[in-house]
Simulated scan of single mutants.
Amino acid sequence: MWRLRRSSRLLLLIPVVLIVVITAVDQLVPEDIHLGPLLVMAPAVTASFAGAWLTGLIGSLAVAAQAYIGWHFGVLTSRNVLVQILALVLLSALSVFFCRVRERRQRQLAQVRSVAEAAQHGLLWPLPERMGPVQIACLYLAAEDEAQIGGDLYAATRITGGVRIMIGDVRGKGLSAIGEAALLMGAFREAAHRHATLPDLAATLGHSVSRYLADFEPATEAGERFATALLLELPDDDHTIRMISCGHPPPLLFSPAGCITVPSLHPAPPLGIAETGPDAYAIDMAPFEQGDTLLLYTDGVIEARDRDGRFYPLEARVAQWNRTGPESLLHHIHRDLLSHTGGYLNDDAALVALHRHPDDHEHRRHGRRT
């Protein structure tokens, strides 16, 4: 804020210097050359960066300078000088008027943005930094300008004896996909506590998406809207991950030794393609030992292209950061991904990093707690 105010003060010197220089030079040039009309530049320039009050002040100074020039040459009451002064007054008044209109629209836009941000934060709840033995970090990059969420989603909830996590991707991007993403996140938060097994949970989410699409899917897009999802269950006392992939990319698993593996998955169809029962979803399991890190992501990450059309090589890039913590890992990916794409994403992207800390009983046995 201090730098912004200092910058505005420095910019204010430009119209002031213009008024002083034009007034001084006009008295030095031959009498048949009139520089007074150039004073209109001062309020016009001020209106580009300042508010109505400062623009009016600079306009008044410009009018006073024009009057001084006329008085200095003894032609203040001449029609030519009076017309120049009147024109300068009108231009300054118009500049002040448009500044007020701009300020009003800026206040309205700021209010709309604050409401939109509150709504988006309400839909995509921030994940806690820790759930049981699992440390969590998340990153969301929306493709739509001014949007903070879009068609990608993630959610996590504590259940008896463990943690359930979902990461998903609704077909489409940006603001148009928020409704379906909100439905899926709400259904997960409600159903994750009620179903004992992941297949039951996946089937319930599939039914929820199908019902939503039946009610709200446009006829022109019938059968073309769906959502991919990866459901995970991380027991507190069992060093394994239970996963169900509904057409979603597999995660990356980092060991403390720096080895990166891709757990083998048997993906089911995406949610919303067809209503299926729990038997259609196979549980895949992988070890998740103390010190391991699991990276979940959406296809907006691996399908991000550079200027030459090459996809972002996520697995190759994270190999150099696989021994860092979750927050640091996502920070490196964020910076590298934007560098790869030139700062612009064609699709929403979401990442969640999970790190398993040593069990509490292991720390107690060594005389310390997490």
Rank of each mutant, 00 (worst) to 15 (best):
residue 273 I to T: 12
residue 254 F to M: 14
residue 221 E to R: 13
residue 285 M to C: 13
residue 213 L to S: 02
residue 282 A to M: 11
residue 276 T to L: 14
residue 267 P to W: 00
residue 215 D to F: 14
residue 293 T to P: 07
residue 224 E to Y: 04
residue 284 D to Q: 10
residue 293 T to D: 09
residue 244 I to F: 01
residue 237 D to N: 15
residue 260 I to F: 08
residue 283 I to G: 03
residue 230 L to N: 06
residue 237 D to P: 06
residue 234 L to F: 01
residue 230 L to R: 00
residue 237 D to T: 15
residue 262 V to A: 11
residue 269 P to F: 12
residue 251 P to S: 05
residue 287 P to E: 04
residue 279 D to F: 07
residue 278 P to M: 12
residue 293 T to N: 06
residue 268 A to R: 12
residue 283 I to T: 13
residue 292 D to W: 13
residue 288 F to K: 10
residue 286 A to G: 09
residue 279 D to K: 08
residue 266 H to G: 00
residue 234 L to N: 05
residue 262 V to E: 14
residue 243 M to C: 05
residue 235 P to V: 13
residue 224 E to I: 05
residue 216 F to D: 11
residue 248 H to T: 02
residue 251 P to K: 05
residue 262 V to N: 06
residue 229 A to L: 04
residue 235 P to E: 02
residue 219 A to Y: 11
residue 242 R to E: 15
residue 286 A to P: 03
residue 246 C to Q: 10
residue 289 E to C: 15
residue 252 L to N: 10
residue 272 G to S: 04
residue 269 P to W: 06
residue 285 M to P: 00
residue 242 R to T: 12
residue 249 P to L: 03
residue 266 H to W: 11
residue 256 P to W: 01
residue 229 A to V: 04
residue 265 L to A: 07
residue 219 A to P: 08
residue 275 E to C: 06
residue 280 A to C: 07
residue 222 A to M: 11
residue 253 L to T: 09
residue 226 F to L: 10
residue 278 P to D: 08
residue 274 A to E: 14
residue 268 A to Y: 01
residue 291 G to D: 04
residue 219 A to K: 13
residue 243 M to E: 08
residue 226 F to D: 01
residue 270 P to V: 03
residue 285 M to H: 12
residue 284 D to S: 15
residue 221 E to G: 08
residue 238 D to K: 11
residue 288 F to Q: 00
residue 256 P to D: 10
residue 220 T to H: 13
residue 259 C to P: 01
residue 246 C to P: 03
residue 263 P to Q: 00
residue 287 P to Q: 07
residue 291 G to P: 07
residue 255 S to K: 03
residue 276 T to I: 09
residue 232 L to W: 00
residue 240 T to I: 15
residue 284 D to H: 02
residue 270 P to E: 04
residue 255 S to Q: 01
residue 256 P to N: 02
residue 288 F to H: 01
residue 277 G to S: 08
residue 225 R to V: 13
residue 262 V to K: 12
residue 264 S to R: 15
residue 273 I to G: 01
residue 270 P to A: 11
residue 218 P to Q: 09
residue 226 F to R: 00
residue 292 D to H: 13
residue 266 H to I: 11
residue 277 G to E: 05
residue 220 T to M: 03
residue 222 A to I: 08
residue 295 L to M: 10
residue 273 I to K: 10
residue 281 Y to L: 09
residue 272 G to F: 09
residue 294 L to W: 02
residue 270 P to F: 07
residue 244 I to A: 09
residue 289 E to A: 15
residue 282 A to N: 06
residue 288 F to I: 00
residue 266 H to C: 14
residue 273 I to W: 04
residue 284 D to L: 11
residue 237 D to Y: 07
residue 245 S to Q: 05
residue 273 I to V: 15
residue 281 Y to Q: 02
residue 253 L to E: 02
residue 227 A to T: 08
residue 255 S to T: 12
residue 247 G to T: 06
residue 287 P to M: 02
residue 275 E to Y: 04
residue 292 D to K: 04
